[in-house]
Amino acid sequence: MPYSAEISRNSPTAILFLLDQSSSMLEPFGGQPDKRKADGVADALNRLLQNLCLKCAKADGIRDFFHVGMIRYGGRVESAFSGALAGQTLVPVSRIANNPLRVEMRTRKVDDGAGGLTDQNFKFPVWFEAHPTGRTPMCEAFAKAKEFLSAFIGVQPQCYPPIVINITDGQPTDGDPREAAKSIRALASQDGAVLLFNAHISDKQNRPIEFPAEEGMLPDDFARLLFRMSSELPPKLLDAAKADGFAVGPQSRGFVFNADLVAVIRFLDIGTRVAQSVR
């Protein structure tokens, strides 16, 4: 059965983030109008990386269940790593965890146990900062992703299929990306085809949409384009999404509108279990 390979240190899989950093991303983000879409992408990515690291973290360090890459496209297509990881393609998740650009101290409101709220400090690592510029070569970014993942599957042919997470406003300038997307989804390990998921960061203020099964509810052509390019969630991810409270059906796709894909990191089974309250 596809999508059943174990994700382990002996058999890691890859997660590759594609980050739209074109000049259209300077526009405001629909969900939070005081924020640029490019910053929405950066936030989404930093949260995804943080969750990925935490998923693999133990008291004694990070277990390399995943190799992680990030490609930015805005003007040029290039590795989005900077600092100690500058220029890298796919690196073990332990290197990500141990090499953020900086760790910020942030504050959030939490239940004080007496019916009120209190401030709680928490550490927020930052790996990526937004620098939007130029046009949107999404097709070229997909081609680069295919190159990275072909090499990875060559080394790990039995791995759980790698996952590509594309975070964008869905306005490519180098042609119709559907063929390039199809070509990524045609890549496969012995356990199944590469999964392509899309997070649409839009300037529209519509409510977030998560893992839709059909495109009728989507607000515009950009969202529909990204939906069509997105892989259906494999059965085990669907089950995890259901258990997590998402209203998903058999044809639900790895697509979100004005929402993040952090939940997908939770859905990945690395042979561990976690209490429902751990988030």
Binding site: C53, L54, A57, K58, A59, G61, I62, A97, N98, P100, V103, F122, K123, P125, V274, A275, V278
Partner: peptide
């Protein structure tokens, strides 16, 4: 046993969440 240990950011965050 664990709350006073010096830990990297990720282990500290996991510790805050508790063990199950």
């Amino acid at each position: 046993e664990v709350m006073d240990l010096e830990l990297p950011w990720y282990a500290e965050t996991k510790r805050e969440q508790g063990a199950y």
